[in-house]
Design a protein around this nucleic acid. Structure first.
Lengths: 328, 328
DNA sequence: CTGAAAGCGCTAACAC
DNA sequence: GTGTTAGCGCTTTCAG
């Protein structure tokens, strides 16, 4: 029913290839013919069928975006930025949610492979080996985790953790707890490594708790454990856990930040809204989305030279962190 | 590079059409041949190219989902549910963000039209006329707004507003303010109509404020105006505005819910997290996403008979609403 | 039950 | 600068 290239050719009295060129290589066609063709196309409401075009060019102008959980507040800004950025470059975005399942992840990449020019893999749960294997089927850009040999976009969590610990040290805290995230998370290892190092340098004690699920329960469930450590400040793996922890501490009658300071990571929309508002390490999720799209589209150029983009973080001080309580 | 139907045909010693049938009409092929073909396909890592298939069948097995703002907390649960539900039925999802712009919306539908079997239009900003016109190019299902003649999924906001007002009346409030949303919003009109009616029935005063932008600023900016009305309770167009309003009231030294009760609409993830936690009308966003997918895929069946699905809402009572202050 | 042939909408050499 | 031809990967008549 919709107009095809053939209809336009017929109406404008030229051959289909001329119509084709009018759209895919306008400079190769006489301006006056071009104008006429464009005119007829407009009249007929003709729009090139990208799928048909892809069949022959091999470029779909589609990108796949695979995330662990669309509803996790960390992702929407990333998705939004990626979509907007991609569309600005005339690419459309497939979105898929793996529900944190590595098998679903693999299946999804395979299923999408033929319909996209590449896939953005956000916080994948698959093994490096699995990811490398998939990358032979379709160009991949990994977000939130470095995979050797593949282009990736990561946040500088080492820097973020350092900023957070230094902030707490500056407030006089001498015993800090690190509320760890899920086992096997690269981010978690980075945070732990950097926090440990920073604490040692500053000669303060650091107690590591975890692994924990990266959600509110993972925070609220550890409130008692945190209290038992005797720490006066906590750095949590992410905002969700930080918020959960504050809840848990509240239930246990511990005031934040008067008795215990809590710092999160990510600066999701949540952190401005909770009470107390959350001191947190802002990760540039929107920038990550755009960078990932850029890396994918740079395919063909010297992709190796920018194989790993590391985005800087920033400490946002709000009301959940304060001076260490004085022992009087 | 990836295996095609031809490669499989060659290796398994049958004609391409047999391979094709093995995947698209397995019952038409001899079990033993089928097994052999499947085996070779597996070996070669063959996967049918859906775009190529679509070219001939006319069915892409893709769905487009267009929302006003991916990062608005209302949408992610809907997107997630739609994606999961669609994938369960072997459909993939394109996502696109219009940034609340009607022109972008139209352009997006047109751009996606050839690559999808239909488009889910969430909270569209376009006119009914525009939408109807587009629906001639591609099957459309509208979410959050009824469009005459088109399948749509809406929330029963009339019911929701009634529940909210009755709740406040039950708490003894006799003067309630309605913090209206954006001009031209169907939802807004429904809420207003129902709130007005319910208030009149209960013989309580209702003061309508607005239109306002449907975000936190739209709430915080109206705090003074709300106070001036003298109302002791407010129903806001959505959670974001309710939360903003609570902030604004707080800044003005008005306590919630002691002096003024605030009720939101939507029950976004936010509402459990703010302090005080937000009493709100829960709208079943996930169910809406699934219902919209179902309606789209039911195309061909008797679509008219279920042209408008209305989803029930539910009042969630938390801590931002309380008894009307006594005038002593 | 399987093969042959045509063609979905489009682009890409290659002629003219 | 434009027409001709072949064919991307697949499904679908139609024969056999």
């Amino acid at each position: 029913m919709p107009a095809t290239i053939r209809d336009v050719a017929k109406v404008s009295g030229v051959h289909v290839s001329t119509v084709s060129r009018t759209f895919s290589a306008p400079h190769l066609v006489n301006p006056s013919t071009r104008a006429r063709v464009l005119d007829c196309a407009e009249q007929l409401g003709y729009r090139p069928n990208r799928a048909a075009r892809a069949l022959i060019t091999g470029r779909t102008h589609n990108i796949g975006l695979i995330v662990a959980d669309i509803a996790n507040p960390f992702f929407p800004p990333l998705i939004k930025a990626a979509e907007t950025h991609a569309r600005g470059r005339d690419y459309h975005l497939f979105i898929a949610d793996t529900n944190e399942d590595a098998n679903v992840e693999e299946e999804l990449v395979l299923a999408l492979a033929k319909q996209v020019d590449g896939v953005l893999l956000c916080s994948p749960r698959m093994s490096n080996t699995q990811i490398e294997r998939l990358s032979r089927d379709v160009p991949l850009v990994v977000v939130n985790r470095p995979v050797p040999g593949l282009p990736a976009v990561v946040m500088d969590h080492a820097q973020g953790a350092r900023l957070a610990i230094e902030h707490l040290v500056g407030l006089g805290h001498t015993h800090i707890a690190l509320l760890g995230g899920p086992r096997g998370s690269w981010t978690n290892r980075e945070i732990r490594r950097s926090a440990t190092l920073t604490a040692r340098t500053a000669s303060v004690e650091l107690t590591v708790l975890g692994p924990n699920p990266p959600n509110e329960e993972g925070g609220s469930g550890q409130a008692e454990a945190v209290i038992r450590t005797g720490a006066t400040a906590v750095l949590a793996y992410n905002d969700l856990m930080a918020v959960g922890l504050i809840d848990g501490l509240d239930s246990a009658g511990v005031a934040v930040p008067t008795q215990i300071s809590v710092v999160g990571i990510d600066d999701t929309a949540l952190s401005r809204r909770t009470r107390p508002t959350l001191t947190t390490v802002a990760t540039p999720t929107a920038a990550a989305g755009r960078a990932a799209v850029d890396m994918l589209l740079a395919h063909g150029d010297d992709r190796r030279t920018t194989a790993l983009v590391t985005l800087q973080t920033e400490l946002v001080i709000r009301n959940s962190s304060g001076p260490a309580p004085t022992n009087i």
